[in-house]
Design a binder for these strands. Structure first.
Lengths: 114, 114
DNA sequence: GATGCTATTCTGCGTTACTATATACCGGTA
DNA sequence: TACCGGTATATAGTAACGCAGAATAGCATC
């Protein structure tokens, strides 16, 4: 799927939050999980800016651990604020998705009644 | 629903396209329809930037008509390119929505198997 | 002519994801 | 040892989008 980047705005951060909530993980792995999900074009840099933002907003706890495969990894876990943020994200998503689907399936006559 | 603006990026344009596809309409009316839909905080300026973009990208035809209630209205209708754009939008939406919902409902264990 | 409503237009701003690149660390191999 | 590919974090610059806020226009009514 090409050129969905604009539609991912605001959504990607929620996905990252959700992925972190599943268990301690780090940037590179998050990127791979997003790709497996289907967002194949997501690159490390994008995820990095998101994790930096989460960090800045104090939504995650961070632990640095050594790796046998490269430089030390920064592992993220959701804190209480992050959990709350995630719940709010899902509420927003459900709201928007329901509205969009409503628009999509609405009978296609302007007056509403035939 | 407050502060959903980031999640509306790329989506709002599709909504406007869909509304225009229902029948000839103008900026102010589009704004009202979006509000009725549930996006209560959408303002005229936002819709204006979208219609300007549609115009610039040649996705709409324009007809100016006088109004008894103010300055002349600019009525928009979708042209062929706009129709195509709208179909692509819905495909993108379905793709993203399915992926997000997949993420949302996925069993919450990292390995996937219990 | 002052006010109020409808309606369009315009500008500047903040947020977000992407591109492209740099840096660092390790294992394997020649 | 010197190089390379995979892993992993970091940063600067860019473009797109929606929003706030204000200006302007036209008409009705008082």
């Amino acid at each position: 799927m090409e050129n969905i980047t604009e539609m991912l705005k605001g959504v990607l951060e929620g996905c990252v939050l959700e992925i972190i909530s599943r268990g301690e993980t780090y940037g590179y792995e998050i990127t791979q999980q997003l790709r497996e999900l289907g967002f194949t074009d997501v690159v490390e840099g994008t995820v990095y800016t998101i994790t930096m933002r989460l960090e800045k907003n104090n939504l995650v706890d961070i632990k640095k651990k050594p790796s046998t495969k490269g430089p030390p990894r920064k592992f993220y876990t959701l804190n209480a604020a992050g959990q709350e943020h995630l719940e709010i994200f899902w509420k927003k998503w459900e709201f928007i998705a329901s509205k969009i689907n409503e628009l999509k399936t609405k009978i296609k006559s302007k007056g509403g009644v035939i």
